[in-house]
Design a protein around this nucleic acid. Structure first.
Lengths: 188, 188, 188, 188
DNA sequence: CATGAATGAGGCTTCATTCAT
DNA sequence: CATGAATGAAGCCTCATTCAT
């Protein structure tokens, strides 16, 4: 009896997100994935029940990743200004450094037919207590949690995914955006 | 007999965006599209050179739609507060009332392989002069255009696409969001 | 618009029953069928919704064939002896001369998973009135219809499908079998 | 430890014939068989060289079963009437009580590609001496052996496999059929 | 212009079988 | 002996596109 090969599962996953970045969601066929992962098409079905299941599995694994990363970057001893800056910069950096994963998660999220049939734990909850805590400490204004999340992260996304701009331009935009957001959500 | 042609093209377009909302990007095959549009698969190729071309065509047609709509909603005689509110509400309403189109445009935009090979005129330019005008009039703070656009529209999108919430909840969030954005971008 | 080609449908059907005789029910893959019929695999799906449907369709077409043939061979002016002989010989000849069709129908009938999901009009009804008529005329003994059918046709089948015997041997057996059946079912 | 092996082989065999009844000949894949038998697919290849071999093996084991059973039911002290009745009723009962085995053997027999490449000892020989003996004793008419076999058993099969009828109806048919056959083959 | 027929290529998945433990 | 992992080949079917009317 051979053991399940973690290496193989990993290379399959990597092939999926890489292919989906390069060729879009529909260009990632099982045979291409298998070829890129260096396994037989049949092997994919040892690790995943079928293609849809595979995508949802990978989505569930990575969709929370970014928030775990954010939490690992912040420190409760930071003051409000620092904290917002770190959150935003970390979010931005994650997108830049994990293009493939981010693109995969975004494409998946935007596809109603996929995301609706997905078990879908909203992984955002980890960051909930952080935000609520800062509201109680009167560091962040008392806006609704969902709105705070939207304000802090969505505009940054717009900068990060804009490939028409140079890195320098985007760094400038980001700098200004941090100030805008700090002004918007911090008390004083 | 011209009218009939236009109708066919329209019904094809509608079939495309409807199918892509319902079954995702890869569920929209030419034969399904043709069936839903009530035409033969061969007919599709009278109006479009091939499938990719067709999608890009439709994308180009609809990707600017939202900004045209926004401009049609605002009035230069409005004050700053009003204007921001109208922009945001209009944007929100467009998404709600044009789910299919919005979903199509979003999915297309997020697919690198499609959007990169697209002629891609940045349709956002229409709104550029409006924003710049308000900056000159010292109504809106002197932030970079891209950031202003991101701040005003991206967070709203988060509210509009969140299907886990009731209409009432989303209306509440929107109300608050308008205030947040007004505070962030208006002078005083 | 091209018209549906009757030739093509016929060659597909023939390929199916020929292949199933040669290679058994499971050796008849769509691609082999298509190759033998001289069409593309995709073409098969223009004429049949799917494989199961195709097989059922062909079964329904041929399962009654033999009884139509039998009826075309008999004549109401025949006496009882003649009639039984003709029925048996015709049945035998049909099997010999339509090996492929007969084998297909038999294999299909014996496969519960196929035959149960089949619309399945019992085509035997055509011969019903013939038998009942002869019972009324006191030519054939007053046995139940189903039993008469079984007695007249089933033993003959055993002779016809026995490939271990020479043609001459089978002719001898058939001759004797006719007498046995005549004795069994005719009055006097 | 021997017992365990035999059990595995038995459970594989049972899985094969059960699956073939339920899902037809082509629905019985090695992996399904293994799953149903509670063993690994690889284990099947310890007991059988390959799939075709396995099927032929099982066929050879069961194809004679019914005749062994028949012989175990009859007694040479019975008179002709009794003997025919017992033979027929036993044959009928075997089919009813061993649906799976019978269906497997029938499907296999009707598949030329399988049965032709089969070592194929005609298992019917056991019953040969019984029939010939009764012919010598002038109990059964002096018809050819093959025809007697066909007359006695084939029509019964028609009743046994007809699932459109109730058990009661079939019992009635069987009762009459016994009389028909007795009349046909017994002297006086 | 419009069509349904036709197709080779490729989609996902399962197959029978072998490998390595 | 027994296993689950692994695989190339092949299964069915649908795809985007073209053909012929």
């Amino acid at each position: 009896m051979r053991k399940k090969d973690d290496e193989k599962e990993r290379s399959i996953k990597e092939a999926v997100i890489k292919l989906i970045l390069e060729e879009g969601f529909h260009g990632a066929s099982i045979s291409k994935i298998a070829k890129m992962a260096g396994v037989s098409p049949a092997t994919v079905y040892i690790y995943y029940e079928n293609k849809e299941n595979m995508l949802q599995n990978i989505y569930n694994e990575y969709s929370e990743d970014i928030f775990d990363y954010l939490l690992s970057c912040v420190d409760l001893k930071m003051d409000g200004q620092q904290l917002i800056e770190i959150l935003i910069r970390s979010y931005y950096n994650y997108i830049i450094q994990n293009k493939e994963i981010f693109s995969f998660v975004e494409q998946f999220s935007n596809c109603p037919s996929l995301v609706n049939s997905c078990s879908g734990k909203k992984g955002v909850c980890h960051i909930y207590s952080l935000i609520e805590d800062m509201k109680k400490k009167q560091i962040i204004k008392n806006y609704r949690y969902d709105n705070l999340l939207a304000i802090i992260f969505y505009p940054v996304k717009a900068i990060a995914v804009d490939n028409h701009k140079s890195e320098a331009e985007r760094a400038d935009l980001l700098k200004e955006m941090i100030i805008i957001i700090q002004d918007a959500v911090l008390i004083q």
